[in-house]
Write a protein that binds this DNA or RNA. Structure first.
Lengths: 356, 356
DNA sequence: ATGAAAGCGCTAACAC
DNA sequence: GTGTTAGCGCTTTCAT
């Protein structure tokens, strides 16, 4: 007597643990214990059950398992742009820790749309993942931000764990990249080379990442007696295309600029590309600095001088924080940064430079 | 009288639909109907229930929903390397369709490890996702391949839908990039420019992608009366670093080479980088061709001549196939390709070239 | 239009 | 060491 419900009419249905148990001649409970490696079963029986399950191609239903109170072996990772090297490296770090802990990672992609960000967050909560790592800058939309904060609070109240990368107002454990220090170092570098006609190429200042990097830049400028307000900041999309657009604007509105500090490597690549298309030589006419030190930075022509952030480690730290026992107060872990000097920067040209 | 089980001792527990129903003064069934927008409820009541749920911050448990037979609004995407631009663009296409259909995407990353590939596939099946898109070349390990095929067959037998991108032996619907045609076009291009000393830089030939692209190359060579066996093929990792290693080998073992055809853009970037570090000018001394036309290809220095594959569309097609009603026989959709000529290719140098 | 009750597949007490 | 049974939170007949 079997309890299999498959009929010709409604088609086959996925195997249940019950099916495995029957075939192995044991009870449901014994089968469950055997497969989840808990004790209370003789090793002989357990081995047989496992063999039967394997042979039948049984794959447990995580929904049932999770509902019944079994451990949720999955965590969520929220990134802005899958494929953006910055997030890809963070993801690598998160996955590394996850794999070590036997966890599955659900990667959610927001496309930088606050609505999507909220929706993805909800979907993660709905999936009752064991923890959530939020990478990328905070919410631009204050209303979305409030909703997200509330959802996250409820999630944590019910035992969920959250860690964020970057400055957020979510009240969770956080990994804080050294954006201020990096912005300072990048700026000091061009200042040390002797540049005086500098332009910054940035993403939206609503992004905390951008705001922090600019803060560091302003500090470096002020320390040398330069009024930060006198230095142009061109705001554009925080992407390669944004870098191209911004470079065009720098050339048009700030001729004579000898150094461009881009606030991420992707924008820097766009800047290099546009300058090349306009016949401006780097670093002979104009120096370019990036930020992040993504993988490809060293393989560009010219190779890119940039600020290295330990992105893989940041991902590792974030998931590790999320996996730790919750503390009463949010924890913070700060990273360091490193100036990596390559071929895209040099002293300004003698004549003061005429990039266009 | 409430049924809430939260106690000071075991801490709060996530909200249940039951809690919402009680607060709204309706039955569980009515609450369920209200939130899932099914009829059988007066609009007045439904609106109130929705308002209460929203106010309480209720988020439905997908595990319970799925177990109870509700629709699984999530699909799985299996890629080799998150962050590899090839897969990132495919993912963009998949997500575009998913968003349109109101589906959530679970991205799984195999790191090109066959063991991981199998594990991730299982996890997707265990999650009872509505469909699975497998991107990237097939399994290298025949045993893993067999296991994967079996799991996938069981998954489909129980109603799951599968689509693959690239040539596989999985018996599922497939999107087939024009790798053979692209390999032919890339090779014809350098032949047309007058090159006779050509080297191919490839990933493992076990990858069907690599094998197919080489097949096209061999066809083009043969059509011009050149014995394909006489043209060097340097095999290395299918990555940027692999491209560097392969370029070094070409320089060392095949001096006099005037054209390098890399079998993907990532390798081509590595080739460009290594040639530059060795003082070899591109395209003056050596021409370089890539494959895929990833986003950054046009922004490199020199910009890369390559074969464009419609990767975003491939992702869209794959998910669309997976979402269609199953057919008795596997469906196939072939893509086209396009040769994009940029600055990295030119006729060979007069003297025959001396790249080192 | 609304409610009561029976599962979905699994784990975790609790018996034996 | 093994089996029985009561849920987990939800959707869905089936009554009302």
């Amino acid at each position: 007597m079997t309890s299999r419900r498959s009929t010709a009419a409604n088609g086959p249905i996925a195997l249940r643990l019950q099916d495995v148990a029957e075939r192995a001649g044991v009870s449901l409970a014994t089968a469950s214990r055997s497969l989840s490696g808990r004790d209370g079963v003789s090793e002989t029986v357990a081995a047989r059950v496992r063999a039967v399950a394997q042979e039948m191609g049984y794959i447990a239903n995580v929904h049932a398992r999770s509902l019944a109170g079994g451990a949720t072996a999955s965590i969520g990772l929220l990134v802005h742009e899958i494929g953006d090297p910055y997030f890809a490296e963070i993801a690598t770090g998160v996955m590394r820790v996850a794999t070590r802990e036997g966890l599955t990672v659900q990667v959610c992609h927001t496309g930088r749309d606050p609505g999507q960000e909220l929706a993805q967050l909800r979907s993660l909560v709905a999936n009752r993942v064991g923890g959530i790592v939020v990478a990328g800058s905070g919410f631009v939309d204050p209303e979305m931000q409030a909703e997200a904060k509330r959802d996250l609070a409820a999630y944590r109240a019910s035992g969920g764990r959250v860690a964020v990368i970057g400055r957020h107002h979510l009240g969770a454990d956080a990994v804080l990249p050294d954006n201020v220090g990096g912005g300072r170092s990048a700026t000091e570098h061009v200042l040390d080379l002797g540049h005086t006609r500098i332009a910054f190429v940035a993403g939206s200042r609503q992004l905390t990442t951008v705001a922090d990097r600019l803060t560091g830049a302003a500090e470096a400028l002020a320390a040398r007696g330069i009024d930060p307000a006198s230095v142009p900041i061109v705001e554009s999309a925080f992407t390669r295309q944004g870098g191209k657009d911004a470079a065009a604007q720098v050339l048009a509105e700030h001729p004579g600029t000898t150094a461009v500090v881009a606030l991420n490597d992707d924008m820097a690549i766009g800047v290099l590309s546009h300058l090349r298309s306009r016949g401006v030589r780097v670093p002979d006419d104009v120096s370019v600095v990036g930020f992040d030190d993504i993988d490809v930075a060293g393989d560009l022509a010219p190779s890119l001088t940039t600020i290295r952030l330990p992105m893989v480690e940041m991902g590792e730290m974030a998931l590790s924080l999320a996996l730790k026992e919750p503390s009463s107060r949010p924890r913070r872990r700060s990273t360091d940064h490193e100036l990596v000097v390559r071929d895209s920067t040099a002293p300004p040209p003698r004549d003061g430079g005429s990039p266009a």
